[in-house]
Design a binder for these strands. Structure first.
Lengths: 353, 353
DNA sequence: TTGTACGCGTTATCAT
DNA sequence: ATGATAACGCGTACAA
């Protein structure tokens, strides 16, 4: 597996000084040319000739030392889940169009990694930051904000910071999802809730309680289980739910992973959706359309979230002086009705063994 | 939605000079302290005190100007598909552990974006590059290599470059997948092939032909359709396949998206998997385990790919002088047998209407 | 071990 | 519009 490299000795990249020398003009003139200012046409040609000949590429760091503008957007999330990777893809795409790129950091819910990530962003002078709100991040984010770095929080909140925010109507969407189950006759509706330390985890669960309260359906605490967003924990939780004396007839899963965990156990128990159990998922994926009769799901407006984030960032970046108050945008979610929910008539099918 | 900012005027971050002044020592001493060299213990305390008091954070760019080491890894892929986002997540995680971060660029198969992305990497002096091989990238990547930037290609090849590579045994895995279908009695096996401009697209299709040839099954050109990796094109292609006079009894889909497209039409036509059609997917996702009787799938060793990439990069980064010849690692894929494939006995069920 | 001074590649500020 | 030159923040010789 050997290849002849044949390459010339690796050479230090040419600098603006080299360009100026070859073009026979002053450094400042080259700099002005590079930054799109007017240059005498004769000089322009000389400079372009020199750049092409040398293969010159500007050193963005050296420029950043003066301008404090790196064109790099920090992006920090716990993991690249379906949802976050969708956001990242859209964000990356849109940033590309405005000459920026996204520096991606996954902290895996490890507090030390959160700190290290933000330190990395700070030392590398990202000129803006997009992140999923994380309590441990508060201090360091505050530091960035004070140095004038625009920050946008999305998905989870991180209260007490003067930054922009983009959320979805978690509570309203959850309310509608659970409300749908109640409205088609279910009274025994369980919820696989996300981690309650998270804003979204709490909001979605609030939506569940709201829907019950609005219809005066009593809360059964056995039906409320926190599964920490994870597939395996949801799987275990489902087993406990189905072992109840009165197992639920409907289920609301607060994210994609937990839906998968639930479906896994449902398959293991050979239960039928929606005959034995109706199910609604928060978060949608293409395969939910195809899974048996389809999984009813709440869809988050991923692209719109990314677009909103971009708008907020560019707004701050282009008006660095205007200390406009921070804004919060909250977007609606759709709920797509598919075959995983059916009217409950009381004529139960089989339940857990 | 107004918040009192109450923050002090945004201030330029403190520099090493400030630290030196407050600590009452020379700049050089602070620099040496920062880089872990020995400093008189008294001075060390003063410096640490000053750093804490000022909230000093090193400017990595200024340092990079001297060292040419930014700690940023360029990462370029066409899109953040299931596969690529998995790679990115693992890579990001592993890079975190060695104090680096990943700058993510999606080019959307747009040649100009490929160029711009590589230019961005070059101007920002990423000190290594990981990318899905892309023909349009050849020249610019060559430029990076000549300046001594370690590059690792994965997924698709980009021939003629002296760089490291990590691939999977696309051909062998496809061969086994199709071979399995043939071995359980199918002779009418169709393939939804990826774009043939791509290395993986060609290799996986070669595996298909190989499996046929090894068993002396004649090729039916009608059964070979290129669907450009996309769900919608796969959906349309499936419609044509099922309209054939002799529709296939088994199907090999060369990636996840095309499998979804195929399943979509299968659902639309109310066909049964595997009764009417056996199906194997290249690429696996959790829901494939749960879809009806399960989808038989080829799984790529995502974490192992990321680990190999990391190893290659660190190896180059830590031995910048040793001009070791470039290496290619090719990893095996597993094939997970699930319920979407069944022995073909000739007793056909219904086919397309 | 410490302090000084220079250089890294670029932008910005002057005169011109 | 251009050219010369002073920063920018840090690393690193070199002299002390």
């Amino acid at each position: 597996m050997i290849e002849a490299t044949g390459s010339a000795e690796q050479t230090r990249p040419p600098t603006i000084v080299d360009v100026a020398r070859v073009a026979g003009v002053a450094i400042g003139t080259v700099s002005r040319y590079l930054n799109g200012q007017t240059v005498r046409s004769g000089n322009r040609d000389q400079i372009e000739e020199a750049i092409g000949q040398l293969g010159y590429q500007r050193n963005a760091f050296a420029a950043a030392m003066k301008t404090d503008l790196t064109g790099i957007v920090g992006f920090m999330v716990p993991s690249l889940s379906e949802f976050h990777s969708g956001i990242l893809e859209h964000l990356s795409r849109k940033m590309r169009a405005v000459g920026r790129a996204v520096l991606c950091y996954c902290h895996d819910d490890d507090p030390r990694s959160v700190q290290e990530g933000l330190d990395f962003f700070a030392t590398h002078r990202v000129d803006s930051l997009v992140m999923d709100g994380e309590p441990e991040a508060a201090d360091r984010v505050r530091g960035l904000v004070q140095h004038g770095t625009p920050v946008v929080l999305y998905d989870n909140d991180l209260p007490g910071l003067a930054v922009d925010r983009v959320f979805v109507e978690n509570r309203a969407a959850a309310n509608r999802a659970v409300g749908h189950l109640l409205d088609i006759g279910h009274s025994r509706v369980a919820v696989l809730a996300g981690n309650q330390k998270n804003f979204t985890g709490r909001e979605r669960l609030k939506g569940y309680f709201e829907a019950l309260a609005e219809r005066e359906v009593p809360v059964n605490r056995d039906y409320v289980v926190e599964s920490n967003w994870k597939e395996v924990e949801a799987h275990a939780a489902m087993r406990r739910l189905l072992a109840l004396e009165e197992p639920p007839t409907a289920l609301f899963c607060c994210n994609y992973n937990m839906t998968v965990g639930a479906l896994d156990l449902i398959k293991e128990y050979k239960l039928s959706v929606p005959h034995d159990l109706s199910i609604v998922s928060f978060d949608d994926v293409p395969l939910f359309r195809l899974y048996e009769a389809g999984i009813t799901a709440v869809t988050q407006p991923v692209e719109q979230i990314a677009e909103t984030i971009l708008g907020m960032l560019l707004n701050r970046l282009n008006n660095r002086t205007s200390h406009a108050p921070s804004a919060t945008v909250t977007l609606d979610c759709d709920i797509v009705l598919r075959g995983s929910t059916r009217r409950w008539t009381g004529s139960a099918g089989k339940t857990a063994q």
